Simulated scan of single mutants.
Amino acid sequence: MDEESSIEEILDTIGDEHARTVLASISRKPGSAKELATRLDLSQPTIYRRLDLLEKNDLIKHQTLVADDGNHYKEFRCNFNSTVISLEDDEYDVRIYREENLPDRFSSLWDDLGVK
């Protein structure tokens, strides 16, 4: 995601029942779209739409894996530890807490310094 999602977009995303179901499932156990469709008894198009929405709002991430038969597929996983939604002075605030790993943090710091 290039820009931060707006509060409204995040609230709309987690307000969607199927998106919440998909997010809850992959927070317990990562999976492919096909696995999620079977696990959650939802159609693959429904799963793909929700995965796109969740990924667009940076709530999930994917990793491309290679199956035993040589085909590639994406495995999706949750991209945060917790979320806090607060209301203060008639304004909502959404904070998403992520656990970054050390190589990602170093890479981000390196990028911020503009070192090429």
Results as ranks from 00 to 15, higher is better:
Glu55Lys: 15
Glu55Ile: 04
Glu55Gly: 11
Glu55Leu: 12
Lys56Glu: 02
Lys56Cys: 11
Lys56Ser: 05
Lys56Val: 10
Lys56Gly: 10
Asn57Ala: 11
Asn57Met: 09
Asn57Gly: 00
Asn57Leu: 06
Asp58Val: 00
Asp58Pro: 02
Asp58Ala: 11
Asp58Arg: 13
Asp58Phe: 04
Asp58Tyr: 02
Leu59Val: 00
Leu59Gln: 03
Leu59Asp: 00
His62Phe: 09
His62Thr: 08
His62Tyr: 10
Gln63Asn: 05
Gln63Pro: 06
Gln63Met: 05
Gln63Ser: 11
Gln63Ile: 13
Thr64Cys: 04
Thr64Tyr: 07
Thr64Asp: 11
Thr64Leu: 02
Thr64Pro: 09
Leu65Ile: 06
Leu65Met: 09
Leu65Ala: 01
Leu65Trp: 04
Val66Ala: 05
Val66Thr: 09
Val66His: 01
Ala67Asp: 00
Ala67Met: 13
Ala67Gly: 03
Ala67Gln: 05
Asp68His: 12
Asp68Gln: 14
Asp69Tyr: 11
Asp69Thr: 05
Asp69His: 13
Asp69Leu: 06
Asp69Arg: 11
Asp69Asn: 14
Asp69Ala: 08
Gly70Glu: 09
Gly70Thr: 06
Gly70Gln: 08
Asn71Met: 14
Asn71Gly: 12
Asn71Phe: 15
His72Asn: 10
His72Lys: 15
Tyr73Pro: 00
Tyr73Lys: 03
Lys74Tyr: 06
Lys74His: 07
Lys74Asn: 12
Glu75His: 07
Glu75Ala: 00
Phe76Ile: 01
Phe76Ser: 01
Phe76Lys: 05
Phe76Cys: 04
Phe76Tyr: 14
Arg77Glu: 12
Arg77Ala: 14
Cys78Gln: 08
Cys78Asn: 09
Cys78Val: 13
Asn79Lys: 04
Asn79Tyr: 07
Phe80Glu: 04
Phe80Val: 05
Phe80Tyr: 11
Phe80Lys: 08
Asn81Tyr: 14
Asn81Trp: 13
Asn81His: 13
Asn81Pro: 06
Asn81Asp: 15
Ser82Gly: 09
Ser82Ala: 13
Thr83Trp: 10
Thr83Asp: 03
Thr83Gly: 11
Thr83His: 10
Thr83Cys: 14
Val84Asp: 04
Val84Asn: 02
Val84Arg: 02
Val84Thr: 09
Ile85Arg: 03
Ile85Pro: 04
Ile85Glu: 00
Ser86Glu: 10
Ser86Trp: 03
Ser86Leu: 04
Leu87Ser: 12
Leu87Pro: 08
Leu87Asn: 13
Leu87Tyr: 14
Leu87Phe: 15
Leu87Thr: 13
Glu88Gln: 11
Glu88Ser: 08
Glu88Pro: 01
Glu88Asp: 11
Asp89Gln: 05
Asp89Cys: 04
Asp89Lys: 14
Asp90Val: 05
Asp90Phe: 10
Asp90Cys: 11
Asp90Thr: 12
Asp90Gly: 03
Glu91Asp: 14
Glu91Met: 08
Glu91Pro: 10
Tyr92Leu: 10
Tyr92Gly: 02
Tyr92Arg: 12
Tyr92Ala: 01
Tyr92Thr: 05
Tyr92Gln: 07
Asp93Cys: 15
Asp93Arg: 15
Val94Arg: 13
Val94Gly: 03
Val94Cys: 12
Val94Met: 10
Val94Asn: 00
Val94Ala: 01
Val94Ser: 03
Arg95Pro: 15
Arg95Phe: 15
Arg95Ala: 15
